[in-house]
Simulated scan of single mutants.
Amino acid sequence: MHITAMSAIVLASLAGVAHAEGAKQDFTLINKTGYELSEVYVSPSKSNDWQEDVLGRDTLGDGERTNIHFSRNTSTCRWDLKVVYTVDSSSAVWSNIDLCSVSKITIRYDKNNDVTRASFE
């Protein structure tokens, strides 16, 4: 697996360090699915690889949020997001998200339709 600088940057962001000068792609991911997430991936839309799990060894519980930070010199605006549920390893994917205009992504699980939805702010 090819590890990019982006992977290291996103992993470092999960240490909870607040950067005074964040990149325009920084965003907060909020889990309102009713379930714990075991993995979260953020990769450039042009990439064929999901890179590393940005949660590392952690999980993201229902109702929890995490801040994902990018290097200030990251220039790509279009990113893909993948989340994996702890309970059954199923996943949900969103493609081509303009993180230069999005600062918060909230995901919710719709039990009636068996689909995970995201809202972008």
Score class of each variant (00 low, 15 high):
residue 91 S to R: 08
residue 16 G to I: 08
residue 50 W to E: 10
residue 74 T to A: 11
residue 44 P to C: 04
residue 112 N to R: 07
residue 44 P to H: 05
residue 25 Q to F: 02
residue 4 T to Y: 07
residue 40 V to F: 08
residue 41 Y to T: 04
residue 59 T to E: 10
residue 83 V to N: 06
residue 89 S to A: 11
residue 18 A to V: 15
residue 77 C to M: 10
residue 99 L to P: 01
residue 34 G to D: 01
residue 29 L to H: 02
residue 32 K to D: 09
residue 118 A to R: 06
residue 18 A to I: 15
residue 93 V to I: 08
residue 98 D to S: 02
residue 57 R to G: 10
residue 110 D to G: 09
residue 11 L to G: 13
residue 19 H to C: 14
residue 109 Y to P: 05
residue 40 V to A: 12
residue 81 L to G: 00
residue 70 F to Y: 08
residue 57 R to L: 12
residue 42 V to G: 06
residue 3 I to Y: 15
residue 16 G to R: 14
residue 24 K to P: 09
residue 40 V to C: 12
residue 95 S to Q: 06
residue 46 K to G: 03
residue 69 H to A: 04
residue 60 L to T: 05
residue 37 L to M: 02
residue 69 H to F: 04
residue 102 V to R: 02
residue 12 A to V: 15
residue 76 T to H: 05
residue 7 S to K: 13
residue 52 E to S: 13
residue 85 Y to S: 02
residue 51 Q to N: 05
residue 93 V to E: 10
residue 24 K to S: 14
residue 106 T to A: 02
residue 39 E to H: 14
residue 93 V to G: 04
residue 74 T to W: 06
residue 22 G to I: 15
residue 99 L to W: 00
residue 1 M to P: 14
residue 68 I to P: 00
residue 16 G to W: 09
residue 98 D to R: 01
residue 38 S to E: 10
residue 8 A to I: 13
residue 11 L to Q: 14
residue 100 C to H: 01
residue 22 G to Y: 13
residue 33 T to W: 00
residue 10 V to N: 14
residue 87 V to D: 03
residue 69 H to S: 03
residue 24 K to D: 14
residue 109 Y to M: 12
residue 109 Y to K: 13
residue 70 F to H: 04
residue 98 D to G: 00
residue 106 T to Q: 01
residue 79 W to L: 08
residue 62 D to F: 05
residue 70 F to S: 03
residue 9 I to L: 13
residue 15 A to C: 09
residue 80 D to W: 03
residue 56 G to R: 01
residue 6 M to S: 15
residue 105 I to Q: 00
residue 107 I to G: 00
residue 92 A to H: 07
residue 97 I to W: 04
residue 55 L to D: 02
residue 21 E to G: 10
residue 73 N to M: 08
residue 32 K to L: 09
residue 57 R to T: 10
residue 19 H to N: 15
residue 102 V to Y: 06
residue 25 Q to W: 01
residue 31 N to F: 01
residue 114 D to E: 06
residue 68 I to D: 00
residue 73 N to R: 07
residue 66 T to L: 12
residue 120 F to R: 01
residue 45 S to C: 03
residue 74 T to S: 12
residue 35 Y to W: 12
residue 67 N to S: 10
residue 84 V to N: 06
residue 24 K to M: 15
residue 21 E to L: 14
residue 38 S to N: 08
residue 76 T to I: 07
residue 9 I to A: 13
residue 1 M to D: 13
residue 33 T to N: 00
residue 53 D to F: 01
residue 83 V to T: 10
residue 66 T to P: 09
residue 77 C to W: 07
residue 59 T to S: 08
residue 81 L to T: 02
residue 100 C to P: 01
residue 121 E to A: 07
residue 56 G to E: 02
residue 86 T to H: 12
residue 13 S to E: 07
residue 23 A to D: 15
residue 36 E to M: 12
residue 14 L to C: 10
residue 56 G to K: 02
residue 46 K to L: 06
residue 108 R to Q: 11
residue 90 S to Y: 07
residue 58 D to L: 11
residue 10 V to F: 12
residue 98 D to A: 02
residue 26 D to Y: 08
residue 93 V to A: 06
residue 23 A to L: 14
residue 91 S to W: 09
residue 78 R to G: 13
residue 7 S to L: 13
residue 33 T to C: 00
residue 30 I to T: 09
residue 65 R to Q: 13
residue 36 E to I: 15
residue 11 L to A: 12
residue 108 R to S: 12
